[in-house]
């Protein structure tokens, strides 16, 4: 747990049951069973987990959109379940489904929302920054997924919040929009905003998050900085070197295992795609290169990777599809 100096959000032992009205079998279903987390100012805190892990429910309890069954939540020092306009004006929310009326046009909609705040972010600046001017008069229902996401982000930011909640912010974003949105999030973080986001994409968490909570089955299962989580590697704890994975593409049917020691794992995942995993050393790479030279093999592609957050996540939460 991080040292809580002045956390923007602090959740302790959150429990959420959904009632018989919404679950299929008429029983109460516990969708969050004891999640705790702390989010600081000037940091991006990520809730990472598979679909249905309880991320969105946790966020909605923190936003005051859902009533919690148990546990405590402090958002900027207040209980969000009893939030007034003053607290809501300091918190920006981007919902997973956007929450924007399909018949609305982006620019008039943003001007309307800006009017609800005493000191909104100048609408024109935000429009320009998020590239909304190119579709500012198109109805929301005709926007692409990425355009809708950028508009929803603008709507969440227009009140110049101190805390920003982003539920799956990169869903539907093309690479350019993603870069734009990620740059803005980093900038806001550097300016001191406390940002809490959910994602099921490891890459998002790896690129953006200062601190990650891995959520599975309605519980925290791991937490730490991205670096700390990556170092949970069992081979590190055993004092061995880092595990690396080398993937290369070459003609099918070769046997690179012939030049590597037995403790290095070699598989041909599909015809012509070789995956070599283990505590690789420079000597192993040299042996492999010499073998390529001797057989006149020029790989079509190759990549060397350290352990990714995805590996950590799969180790922790299991590989079952749920």
């Amino acid at each position: 747990m991080r040292s809580p100096q002045s956390p923007v959000l602090s959740i302790s032992g959150l429990i959420k049951d959904v009632g018989p009205l919404t679950s299929l079998d008429g029983k109460m279903l516990r969708v969050v069973s004891g999640i705790s987390l702390v989010a600081e100012r000037g940091q991006v805190t990520a809730l990472l987990g598979a679909n249905g892990a309880g991320k969105t429910t946790t966020l909605e309890c923190a936003q005051g959109l859902q009533k919690r069954t148990g546990g405590s939540i402090s958002l900027l020092g207040h209980d969000p379940a009893a939030a007034g306009a003053g607290l809501r004006s300091r918190v920006g929310v981007m919902l997973q489904d956007g929450g924007l009326p399909p018949s609305a046009r982006p620019i008039p909609l943003l001007r309307h929302i800006a009017g609800l705040y005493a000191r909104p972010w100048p609408v024109d600046e935000l429009i320009e920054r998020l590239g909304i001017d190119t579709f500012g008069r198109t109805t929301v229902r005709r926007l692409s997924g990425g355009q809708k996401q950028r508009l929803a982000l603008a709507a969440a930011l227009i009140g110049r919040p101190e805390v920003l909640f982003l539920d799956e912010p990169s869903a539907g974003l093309d690479p350019q929009s993603r870069q734009l949105v990620f740059d803005l999030i980093s900038e806001l973080r550097d300016a001191g905003m406390g940002i809490i986001l959910t994602t099921h994409l490891m890459d998002d968490a790896q690129r953006l998050a200062d601190y990650v909570y891995i959520i599975d089955g309605g519980r925290n299962v791991a937490e730490g900085t991205v670096r700390e989580l990556l170092q949970r590697d069992p081979s590190v704890e055993a004092g061995a070197e880092h595990v690396r994975t080398l993937v290369f593409e070459a003609p099918p049917g070769l046997d690179p295992a012939a030049v590597l020691p037995a403790h290095i794992d070699v598989t041909e995942a599909r015809a012509g795609s070789y995956c070599i995993t283990g505590t690789l050393t420079p000597a192993h790479l040299a042996a492999l290169a010499a073998w390529w030279e001797a057989h006149n093999i020029m790989p079509a592609s190759m990549s060397l990777q350290a352990r990714s957050l995805e590996d950590v996540f799969l180790d922790i939460s299991g590989k079952d599809i749920r």
Partner: peptide, 30 residues
């Protein structure tokens, strides 16, 4: 545009002194 110049994020002390929301009447009328 820098968010700091727009005051996108503010310190807690400053924020608690400010009226951040428009008045109730104005919100409902809008």
């Amino acid at each position: 545009m820098k968010p700091t110049q727009s005051g996108a994020a503010t310190g807690a002390a400053e924020a608690s002194d400010r009226q951040e929301a428009a008045t109730l009447l104005r919100r409902v009328l809008l």
